[in-house]
Design a protein around this nucleic acid. Structure first.
Lengths: 191, 191
DNA sequence: AGGGGTTGCGCAGTATACTGCCCACTTTCA
DNA sequence: TGAAAGTGGGCAGTATACTGCGCAACCCCT
């Protein structure tokens, strides 16, 4: 060990705390007992007790076996609990002195990596088919001109100008303009 | 160990692979040698070699000490390597069969936590002043109707319909509609 | 009162993460 | 040509993650 003075361990401890809390929550959500999770994951129940108590330093493979048994993404185990208020969606967040001046929250999503903002324009009759993205990706659309036909795995959604839609993009989907004027929209790609 | 048959270990291995690749990349990005990182993190260089070779099963605290020394978020170490091309901004990513059908990438930003998509509307003369956000927050604006006057710490930017702007919002800024028709825009808030 | 399920924890033993020191190889630079 | 810096890896030793077992405590049944 070097003689470097490290920052206090609160951050490190909090990571472990998140893990233990997350595992316990997810295990309860899956309605599994410690014994059942131990058997499914191959991690000993004794270790699960220690992990949930936050008194052991877990390894990546152990954590991943647990994630696999809980059928959740690895990142779900380590991420901090969401302390945002999810009920703010569609909330009228601000109104100005002039009637009509307003700000509306369309979507709020926990992003772990990347955000891409796209401007799209589809002429009448145009189709843009998409393969499924990897798990975790989602898209948020806001149409500001024309009408967008969105098809997500067989299910159709019609978005008129001013409307908004959000969906997980780990499925086949397609954008289509079935109208008679150009469709323009903003596409937010997030993971 | 139970006699349960587990899924193949490819998934588990890939997590470790991501970690090793990420650490190597981030270490190089920080222009640190293995020795330097070892000293800053308190993790032995011997261990760093093993981790970067993907031949050891890292523990959470070890990983966190590395993250701290690299000054990156813990989640940055475990997430899948970014296979997206960062130089695609303003690239005309897609054109349809009809002339005018197109998709343009307006912005791409690495998000570590949260994304909020807002719809705004400002009547003529309306002003919305904002205090500085915390460090790390940034905003991306796309105006689709009217004209938006954006003022970021004394510097003015005029955005007409169809135009786009991106800025770090850890400074005082204000939205203003100096035009004579309503301004409508999409506001993407990201950290 | 008693049996089955769940959880927390002490303990001994094993596997392995982690360290520290070693040397070999390569690249860079004077 | 040689010194210095960076990297990969062998090896012995230590710390600790992890297992398996056993026991106690607390439910919820009947």
């Amino acid at each position: 060990m070097s003689n470097i003075v490290h920052k206090d361990s609160s951050q490190r401890a909090s990571v472990l705390q998140h893990v233990s809390q997350n595992i316990r929550h997810l295990r309860h959500a899956a309605e599994l007992s410690q014994s059942a999770l131990a058997e499914r994951s191959g991690v000993s129940r004794r270790m699960l007790v220690a992990i949930e108590a936050g008194e052991k330093n877990v390894s990546l493979t152990t954590l991943d076996r647990i994630a696999e048994a809980l059928e959740v993404a690895f990142s779900d185990l380590i991420k901090a609990p969401d302390n945002r208020d999810p009920s703010r969606i569609n909330e009228l967040a601000w109104t100005g002195v002039h009637p009509g001046s307003k700000a509306v929250l369309l979507a709020s999503s926990a992003a772990t990596r990347e955000v891409e903002l796209w401007e799209w324009r589809l002429e009448p009759g145009e189709v843009y088919p998409c393969e499924a993205d990897a798990d975790g990706w989602s898209e948020q659309l806001f149409v500001f001109e024309g009408c967008l036909s969105l098809e997500v795995e067989g299910q159709k959604h019609l978005l008129n100008a001013g409307e908004f839609f959000s969906f997980a993009s780990n499925r086949r989907y397609a954008y289509r303009n079935d109208g008679e004027v150009a469709t323009r929209f903003v596409r937010n790609v997030v993971i």
